[in-house]
């Protein structure tokens, strides 16, 4: 397709520049599609309701979905390696309820929060070891982790535990406001997770190996890359993110509840896919996943503005997921033919 050597030095024509842009940036196309959908939804919402694009609505978009952004970042790592992690929702519930329970029993915040995040990482490690060492399909391995974490959440407490720790509550209630806009510490944590993950994926050997493994695990191994370590680490990162999300969600809802996050793994996967990450692995960006979460959040807001049933959220997400998967399928089919 793009065999024509690009003459370096000579001034390229517009057409050559367009070709070069396409050859270099093709993998951003799905992300821009997600941005496009987001913009269209904003525009439609504003045109229809008139009071949609307000600083308050947009600020709450980040606040309401901070935990989901963090989960989507972890999921992106796993999906980029060609795997899947079904356990994120229940790990989030487990770490969340454990955090609430320990805090309610007077354990120091500085110990509790790192501890639950490490527990999340350990759940991820277990999944990763099952996948890598015992060659269990990622779907089944993370399924086992999902069961385990959900059950453990109920072991911690069968009912909701109210959160009274001032520090954790402050994560949610502190507002850096200005001109109607506001930012909470939870939102900052979510953004920071995205930024750190993007830097890791782009600027470290580990990050590039994540992409290489997803592109072709065999090639990556033949190139002498540390594929085993990278795959396990991807699940550890996902588990860590689920641990962080547990703290964020507890702060957000003001309580720990063992039934939190049922179906959240599906929302997360949907957001990641809508954000342009291919489920076959190797292509995608955490930035896209964040956009995917915003698409998800905006659908929710639109539906509540419409006063329609919240059940339309899942239906719309399902439909959007279908459209993206079919389009990806077409793209993959076309590129394998050329």
């Amino acid at each position: 397709m793009t065999d024509t050597p690009v003459a370096l030095g000579a001034r390229p024509s517009l057409r050559e520049r367009a070709d070069r842009f396409r050859a270099r940036r093709a993998s951003w196309i799905p992300v821009s599609a997600a941005v496009g959908i987001l913009v269209v939804m904003f525009a439609v919402g504003q045109a229809y309701f008139g009071n949609f694009l307000t600083p308050r609505v947009l600020s709450s978009l980040l606040l309401d979905n901070a935990y989901l952004i963090v989960l989507a970042v972890g999921m992106t790592f796993v999906i980029l390696t060609g795997g899947i992690d079904l356990s994120v929702g229940s790990v989030m519930a487990f770490t969340g309820i454990l955090c609430a329970r320990m805090l309610s029993e007077g354990a120091p915040t500085g110990v509790v929060i790192p501890l639950v995040i490490v527990l999340g990482a350990l759940m991820g490690l277990a999944t990763g070891v099952l996948v890598q060492v015992f060659e269990v399909q990622p779907f089944i391995a993370s399924l086992a982790a999902m069961f385990a974490a959900r059950g453990l959440a109920f072991v911690v407490s069968l009912s909701s535990i109210k959160l009274e720790d001032p520090f954790v509550l402050a994560l949610q209630s502190t507002r850096l406001a200005g001109g109607g806009w506001y930012l909470t510490p939870t939102g900052i944590i979510a953004i920071a997770t995205v930024v750190i993950a993007a830097l890791v994926l782009h600027f470290t050997r580990f990050g590039r190996t994540v992409y290489a493994v997803g592109g072709s695990e065999q090639s990556a191994r033949l190139m002498g890359l540390a594929t085993a370590r990278t795959k396990v680490l991807a699940y550890v990162i996902s588990g860590t993110c689920a641990g962080i999300a547990g703290v964020l969600f507890t702060a957000y809802s003001g309580a720990g509840y063992p039934l939190n996050g049922i179906g959240t793994e599906l929302d997360t996967i949907a957001a990641v896919v809508i954000g342009g990450t291919l489920l076959t692995g190797g292509t995608g960006y955490v930035l896209g996943s964040m956009i995917g979460v915003f698409v998800y959040g905006t659908i929710k807001v639109l539906i509540s503005f419409l006063g329609a049933e919240q059940s339309w959220t899942r239906i719309t997400i399902g439909a959007l997921l279908l459209v993206f998967v079919v389009v990806q399928r077409v793209i993959v089919a076309r590129s394998s033919r050329s």
Partner: peptide, 16 residues
């Protein structure tokens, strides 16, 4: 070809 087609040409040369 035992390379990673999803990455850039330069990266495929230098991976690792």
């Amino acid at each position: 070809v035992n390379l990673c087609a999803n990455l850039s040409v330069g990266e495929n040369l230098m991976l690792g």
